[in-house]
Amino acid sequence: MNSILEWFGYVAERYDDILETTWEHAQLVLVVIGVATTVAVLLGVYVQRRPTLRAMSLSITGIFLTIPSLAFFAFFIPVFGIGNRPAIVAMILYALLPILRNTVTGLDAVPPAVVESAKGMGMGTMRQLFQIKLPLAWPIMMAGVRIASLITVGIAAIAVLVGGDGLGSYIQSGLTRLGLPNSEFSVWTGVVFTVLLGLVLDAMWATIQRFTTTKGQRI
């Protein structure tokens, strides 16, 4: 109990710095999710009705997700140098699978009769996609974005090892000074604020989903 109060004190002393670091962390995540969503949705729409490409893209993005993150981050240093960039690229590749998978699944779930009637009324391919298919697939796609966001918030803590920003710095500095004063508090700060950030972002996605779907789509 005592140590929790002490930790509160630790946090209070560094409040501004923690918030700023959390914000850096959030920025990393938002950039990654933004790019990954764009890429994965475009890819998903393209491969959904093409069985071979669909299987290939799902396997490849699946393989990305299984590569240990530390190695994956370091892998891009020769190309992008030290800093946020190798981390961002690696995290984008991680985030692809959940969004791609859910885009494809969401498009699969659009009832064929709905597409048939849209086509039968004279909607072209693009109208069908933007007015019918994507809006109907959107809730499932958003679920993918939320999973990707949670994964990225966690993995972004490792960015610090390739010279990136984020809450990983609290964890790293704590771990390297383990046993010295405040080292554990530093680790805890990194962990707790990472988790909080994940929850806040997830709530944000949920709100966006709520306002971008109609009453007719909610269960």
């Binding site: 004279g122 779907t213 007719g216």
Partner: peptide
């Protein structure tokens, strides 16, 4: 074909109303 279909009413058994639209 799209322009042709806009001139022709089309009703199917499963109806296929757009669930996200009023």
């Amino acid at each position: 074909a799209d322009k042709l279909r806009r001139r022709i009413g089309y009703v199917i058994q499963q109806i296929g109303l757009f669930p996200h639209q009023t």
